[in-house]
Amino acid sequence: MNDENLISAQEMIMTAFTNIERAQVEQNNKLFKSWKYVIQSIKSNAINGENLGMNLYSHLRIIDLKNEILLIEADHPAWIQTARLYQKYILTGLKRGLPELKISSLAFRLRGSNAELHKEISEEKIRNDMKSKIEKEDEIIREFEKSREKISESNENSNEKKEIPENLQRILDRLKNDILTESN
């Protein structure tokens, strides 16, 4: 191993952290502190004096903030339900503590699921997707119309007058005469 390929620990750490903006780190720290304060301030109405906020805080964690939606992860569906009961309280507390973040709603996911907040999609991608869907539907309609035309043509061909065998024609004529004479 030659010394040219070796990188010092300091260089690795500096390289890893050069892309992280200090302001973003500070804002995230404020968010986590405010989150902890708001969640732990939730009081239970239970007679035993249970601190619901402490329990809730230990089972929930912030995952992402995108498009004014804060994604929260819970380790059990019951904690998601409990957090939803206090959703308005949590939002109000976060808005008061961090008005610059503009959090408009909370979204929840269960730990272990890969649910994410929607990524922004460009208008061009939406147009291209819609265009391809419309083209597929147009092709389906054209195929349907072709099959309909074939059926219509075969029906027209089958409506042409065909010869009935002579013995069957005599039986039908007799039946017709019998019906006509009995009704008179």
Rank of each mutant, 00 (worst) to 15 (best):
E182H: 15
S122G: 02
S58H: 08
W35E: 05
I151Y: 11
N155K: 11
N177P: 01
L52K: 05
R61L: 08
I164M: 12
E143K: 06
E100A: 03
G53D: 07
K95Q: 14
V38K: 03
T15Y: 15
N167D: 04
I126V: 08
K146S: 04
N177V: 04
K88R: 15
K88Y: 15
L65H: 07
R127H: 06
K95L: 14
N45W: 00
L71I: 01
N29E: 05
L94H: 02
N155L: 11
K133N: 13
L110K: 07
S44C: 03
Q169I: 13
A74D: 06
I140E: 12
L172W: 13
G53A: 05
T82K: 00
L168G: 11
W79L: 00
Q87T: 09
N184H: 12
N157Y: 13
I63H: 02
K125I: 10
Y86N: 15
N45Y: 00
Y89L: 00
S183N: 14
Q40D: 07
G112V: 06
N67V: 06
N29W: 05
F108V: 09
E21H: 09
T82S: 00
S34F: 02
D178Y: 10
R127A: 04
I121G: 04
G53F: 06
S34G: 05
N2L: 14
K33P: 00
S147R: 09
F32H: 15
I151P: 07
E182T: 15
N128K: 09
N5G: 14
K119P: 00
E11N: 09
M14I: 01
P165V: 11
L31Q: 10
K95P: 07
R96F: 00
D64I: 07
N184E: 12
E149P: 01
I80K: 09
M54N: 07
T92I: 08
I62K: 02
R148D: 00
S158I: 09
G112H: 04
I126Q: 04
L6V: 12
Q27T: 15
R22A: 13
K150N: 12
S113E: 11
I141T: 06
